[in-house]
Simulated assay, not measured.
Amino acid sequence: MTDASDPRPGEDGLGERERAVLALERRSWPGPGAKERAVRERLGLSPTRYYQLLNALLDDPRALAHDPVTVNRLRRVRAEKEQRR
């Protein structure tokens, strides 16, 4: 198993960290704080940095190719939030 901070790209061109971010987004979380705790423990990132990386991934065609269901769902959520502003 590779470390989530491993910058080497996989076959899809995404690094291990990017794939780990998408994997965390595929999961459902039991309550408040559980996801943020997992982000800190598994990825060693602050929640702020995690969401910065996630937003960049949503615009990355490699992420869309890797996990189209998750990326498209998150793009819809982001668009809905932007419309409410």
Rank of each mutant, 00 (worst) to 15 (best):
G10F: 00
R76T: 15
L14M: 11
V69I: 12
L24Q: 05
E16Y: 09
E82Y: 02
A20S: 11
G33C: 06
A56M: 05
L54S: 05
L64R: 15
L43T: 08
P9R: 10
Y51I: 02
R73S: 14
D59N: 12
L58A: 07
K35W: 07
L24T: 06
E25D: 06
L54F: 10
L14Y: 06
A34W: 05
L74A: 04
L14D: 05
K35E: 09
A34P: 00
V69D: 10
D59W: 13
E41L: 13
L53P: 02
A63T: 05
R8I: 13
S28G: 08
E18W: 00
A63Q: 04
A34Y: 02
S46P: 07
P32A: 14
E80K: 00
R78A: 07
R17L: 13
L74F: 07
P47D: 03
L45M: 15
R26K: 14
Q83S: 11
R75C: 10
A23N: 11
P32N: 13
V39N: 01
Y51R: 05
K35L: 11
G10P: 02
Y50H: 02
P9L: 02
V39Y: 01
L58G: 12
V71W: 05
R76E: 15
E80A: 00
A4N: 07
G10R: 09
T70A: 08
R26M: 06
R76C: 12
S5E: 11
D3M: 08
